[in-house]
Design a protein around this nucleic acid. Structure first.
Length: 462
RNA sequence: GGUACUCUGGCAGAACGGUUAUGCGUGAGCCUGCAAAGCUUAUACAAGGGGGUUCGACUCCCUCGGGUACCUCCA
């Protein structure tokens, strides 16, 4: 598999024969997660599921930043503690992402639970004279790390002139960034240098090295983290361990809305909660995977609607497959194999989910065509279903299971309707159909038989 | 201002130095008692502007322009 690496700006080969270790920068838990967060995490979820489906073991570590000015501010404004705020939004995170059918990471380390590791990490940096304590905190000395800027392709001297945030006089160099900030206000921890809390970037360095080792395979996150966050992480980590940090840096493009970046600070976010309620997880996932991960995607109801149409085709495909009875056969295996290879090739080539989805929809179309022509044979449908389900799992799409009782009930109603139709009592037959519709069961009348499908209820539909 | 990414048909969105992906939408048709769903078929000669390299460029190079992101809040 090849993945475009931000650091080298080249496609890098990912060796999938051994375990793959991934560190993904998660969210700062001070507010509801939005579709932008969802995209990044869904991209990595599909990557992980794809690799796992190939038998590659994955260790995915994703942090929660649970100590940060924003959390503290929020706590102050709500008259509560930072801990309560962060634990509330961690809960909400799980609520949202479980619904989005994102497989839980191997580990979700929190900054506040790794203060000791962070302190040890800083101690090492000071020992190596890569960091120094000062009046307001402990700072990383950027000038001592000559490769600083290599990820974001920034030049140190240009950065200095561009830094416009109030310069802290206690820093030796304005570019130096805090690894430890002195403070007396909760949450604070004791450290060899004084009471305070960790800087933003240090947690990821300390925790990734702790869980994944000095070097690991993929470090991921949103594009907006390239600078300063990931730049600083590289500097700290490599300064500390003296070895190359992540092998591949994989950055996911932003979600925009009306062409503007979606972000909490611009107040133009669509929360996952809101979009889940209105569109559901399958449509969100299709939407998030509809473009190449590295590019911007623009959020709009129109696009979600387009994916709704597609989702209906997927549902139809599934129910056609499970209801296939035709004895006719068409040699389907070869074509399915072709589509399957196309799907895999797309993902192996810099994780092109758009092309993979094209392949998936080819399979859906092909199935629906066969069904429409009454050519979907039982054994063929088994072949297709196997592949369909494989793709469904990788993409993280899900069609809810129905209980046997429910299925029986539906079948009974359908045969009642059949009788009425034969007797040309269409009004009564339609009543049954309406009743089923109310249960979100849609009937598909084929020439000789009727099948049913359970349509996912989409609040935003029509 | 610097850096990166980006500009493809009404919309979304790929690939490749030579073949007008594909999906949505739209029109027509098939199926049906009627619908719905689905299917079939038709429909766009598209590449930000201008140069250049080439037998040939959407693809490579130059240049001009637009957009977005980042330049110590950010997924």
């Amino acid at each position: 598999m090849k993945i475009q690496d931000t650091l080298s700006n080249l496609e890098q080969k990912l060796d999938t024969t051994n375990k793959i270790k991934i560190y993904l920068c998660g969210v700062t838990v001070y507010d509801e997660s939005h579709i932008g967060h969802a995209r990044t995490i869904i991209v990595f979820d599909v990557l992980r599921k794809f690799l796992e489906s190939k038998g590659t073991e994955i260790e995915l570590v994703q942090n929660f930043t649970d100590v940060d000015d924003k959390i503290i501010n929020r706590a102050n404004s709500e008259n509560t503690t930072a801990e309560k705020i962060s634990s509330r939004y961690i809960e909400n995170y799980y609520r949202d992402f479980d619904k989005l059918n994102v497989k839980r990471a191997t580990n979700y380390p929190k900054a506040t639970e790794h203060i000791e590791d962070i302190i040890k990490f800083i101690e090492k940096l000071i020992e190596k004279q890569m960091a120094y304590p000062s009046k307001n905190g402990v700072y990383f000395s950027v000038s001592k790390f000559p490769e600083y800027g290599k990820l974001s392709k920034k030049k140190i001297d240009e950065l200095q002139s561009g830094s416009r945030i109030g310069i802290d006089e206690s820093k030796i160099d304005p570019l130096d960034f805090a690894v430890w900030k002195f403070s007396d206000v909760e949450p604070v921890w004791e450290s060899p240098w004084g009471k305070g809390r960790p800087g933003w970037h240090i947690e990821c360095s300390a925790m990734s090295v702790k869980y994944l080792g000095d070097n690991f395979d993929i470090h991921g996150g949103g594009r907006d983290l390239i600078f300063p966050h990931h730049e600083n992480e590289i500097a700290q980590s490599e300064a500390c361990t003296n070895s190359p940090f992540a092998k591949i840096w994989m950055h996911v493009g932003m979600v925009t809305i009306g062409g503007e970046k979606m972000s909490k600070s611009s107040g133009n976010t669509k929360s996952i909660k809101y979009v889940l309620e209105n569109w559901g997880s399958n449509i969100i996932r299709l939407f998030c995977l509809s473009g190449h991960y590295s590019k911007v995607i623009d959020y709009s109801e129109e696009m979600l609607n387009e994916n709704l149409t597609k989702w209906r085709q997927v549902e139809t495909c599934y129910y056609e497959l499970i209801h296939a009875t035709s004895e006719k056969q068409e040699e389907v295996a070869e074509n399915i194999k072709k589509i399957s290879i196309e799907f895999d090739n797309a993902l192996e080539d810099d994780f092109n989910t758009h092309l993979a989805l094209s392949a998936f929809f080819q399979l859906v179309k092909e199935t629906n065509r066969l069904a429409a022509e009454e050519k979907l044979g039982k054994s063929d449908s088994q072949i297709i279903k196997k592949e369909f389900e494989r793709m469904l799992i990788i993409l993280g799409l899900s069609i809810p299971e129905m209980t046997e009782d429910k299925k029986q009930e539906i079948d009974n109603l359908i045969s009642d309707r059949e009788k009425l139709r034969k007797e040309k009592q269409f009004e009564d037959a339609d009543k049954i159909r309406d009743k089923l519709n109310e249960m979100n069961i849609e009937l598909i009348d084929h020439k000789k038989r009727t099948i049913w499908m359970k349509k996912e209820k989409i609040k935003a539909e029509k």
